[in-house]
């Protein structure tokens, strides 16, 4: 660092921000990658059916597709609310 450097404005270190942003977006994109295109649609329709009986939130339904050698497992988990069931 030279004695004249204080005259220049120093840029904020930004690599840390880049690293954190990338970690999040890459993880998110990996989780949906390779899954069939119908998954989001399936999720919504399942949610509609479940809502006929239980009043659940969009975030309460979790769909996960796992691949093992030779077979795929579609995992569906629904977090049910504590309250009473919705009136049908």
């Amino acid at each position: 660092m030279g004695i004249l450097d204080f005259l220049k404005r120093k840029p904020e270190p930004s690599a840390g921000v880049a690293r954190e942003r990338l970690r999040i977006i890459v993880a998110q994109e990996r989780s949906t990658r390779g899954g069939p295109d119908y998954l989001p649609l399936l999720r919504n329709e399942l949610l509609e059916v479940i809502r006929k009986y239980v009043n659940v939130d969009v975030e309460a339904v979790n769909i996960n597709l796992e691949r093992d050698s030779g077979h795929e497992v579609l995992e569906l988990s629904v977090a049910l609310p504590d309250g009473k069931p919705a009136s049908a």
């Binding site: 840029p11 270190p13 930004s14 690599a15 840390g16 880049a18 690293r19 990338l22």
Partner: peptide
């Protein structure tokens, strides 16, 4: 990278 302006190899 040392100045924190660029992603490192490790990053």
């Amino acid at each position: 990278v040392e100045a924190g302006e660029m992603l490192s190899v490790k990053d």
